[in-house]
Amino acid sequence: MEFRHNLPSSDIIFGSGTLEKIGEETKKWGDKAILVTGKSNMKKLGFLADAIDYLESAGVETVHYGEIEPNPTTTVVDEGAEIVLEEGCDVVVALGGGSSMDAAKGIAMVAGHSAEERDISVWDFAPEGDKETKPITEKTLPVIAATSTSGTGSHVTPYAVITNPETKGKPGFGNKHSFPKVSIVDIDILKEMPPRLTAITGYDVFSHVSENLTAKGDHPTADPLAIRAIEYVTEYLLRAVEDGEDIKAREKMAVADTYAGLSNTISGTTLRHAMAHPISGYYPDISHGQALASISVPIMEHNIENGDEKTWERYSRIAVALDASKPVDNTRQAASKAVDGLKNLLRSLDLDKPLSELGVEEEKIPEMTEGAFIYMGGGIEANPVDVSKEDVKEIFRKSL
């Protein structure tokens, strides 16, 4: 066994009412903040006003930037960075789901590196085939993250996922300098997630950790987190979907999300995320979680069919965590039980929808395939089974 454990850390503040800590925690890192949110939910629920009050009461002058939409684009991120430079902000605060946190990280990269060199775009930092990327350094502004969903894990990862509306590319990128300094997980915010959002983001938890478990290489420090996260998804996700006021279910899913983010930072995602990113790059109205769900079964079947004993054993562990099989075994038959468990999970969450039902057209498959290899090549390389472009095209077709 060989592995390397290199995990930067956030100061995680977890519990009901913890948003009130956002002011004092932000003050440790700066005096003037840009507060990055989506367009309506945090305002509608009152958490935006609360956050501003907490920040300003702690002596942090606050500029609100509430233009973030799902699948944040280079345009929105670069505009946010320009506001930081114009207003003289020295810390970036995210309040919202994965999109707000990803955008905040991108804004922090651009604004921090623009102090000495202007006309920088977040796309300069993004991987794109053989393109030479701008390094993300300690110049990146500090990020404080308060999550409103249990699913992306972005509050405890360094990764920003940004879409280029011109190329349709949607890579994930970041390093230790883009890791949030402080992460706030307030159950009072999370319990406001509607059922559909709870299901979609909760499935993202499963997707992260099941990919982390099966990725090439050895990752024993991530695997226990990943297994526990799947167990929590199995026991608590449907409960949270059916009853948003079930505090225990909300807490366990928030812990699972945090485990998934930490696991993902140690190990990494594989083919499922590599293929899902170009789906929402070309079809931005398709949520990330649903895109993952729609391609999950054909990918798992492909990996099991073409895997070795090590791969089968890892899928068998997923099957056991999904309560679909016992005991763990290194046979193809044991691994295949994971497919049964996955189908049951998707069905229970009403996420078992083909891509065609979501509006994906077969004619886009070649472009989406190219996008997966250009922008998410690392995930393809980490897949437990080597795949070609023809393999990916065929998986897309089976997902229609």
Rank of each mutant, 00 (worst) to 15 (best):
E367M: 14
K248V: 15
Q290F: 11
K252N: 11
G172R: 01
K252G: 00
E231K: 07
V297Q: 06
A274S: 11
H288K: 03
E245L: 15
P298S: 07
F396S: 04
E242N: 14
T163M: 10
T331F: 13
S316P: 05
L342S: 07
P127Q: 05
R317H: 01
P142E: 13
P284W: 15
W123A: 03
A58W: 01
V76M: 05
L271C: 05
D323Y: 04
I374C: 04
K105N: 06
E231Q: 15
L345R: 02
H64C: 12
P224Y: 01
T214D: 04
P70A: 13
I279W: 05
T198P: 06
Q333T: 14
A81C: 08
K364C: 08
T270W: 03
E370M: 06
A33S: 11
Y315Q: 07
T167N: 08
E309T: 01
D257Y: 00
S148W: 05
S325G: 13
E166D: 15
A226C: 00
D257C: 00
G151K: 11
L19D: 10
D257I: 03
E394V: 02
I227Q: 13
L262C: 00
A115Y: 12
I266Y: 01
V241D: 14
A249E: 14
V60K: 04
G371A: 15
D53T: 15
R317Q: 13
E362C: 10
G46R: 10
E86I: 06
S9N: 09
S356N: 10
G80H: 03
S148H: 02
S336T: 10
V360S: 02
R250T: 12
H64Q: 13
I13L: 15
S280W: 02
L190S: 03
S10N: 07
M376N: 10
D50C: 11
E69F: 09
Y232W: 09
G106D: 09
R332T: 08
T133M: 08
F125E: 01
M275S: 00
A382E: 06
E128L: 02
I318P: 00
K364Q: 14
E69A: 10
I107Y: 04
P195D: 12
G80T: 09
D308H: 11
E242Q: 15
H288D: 14
F173I: 11
K248G: 08
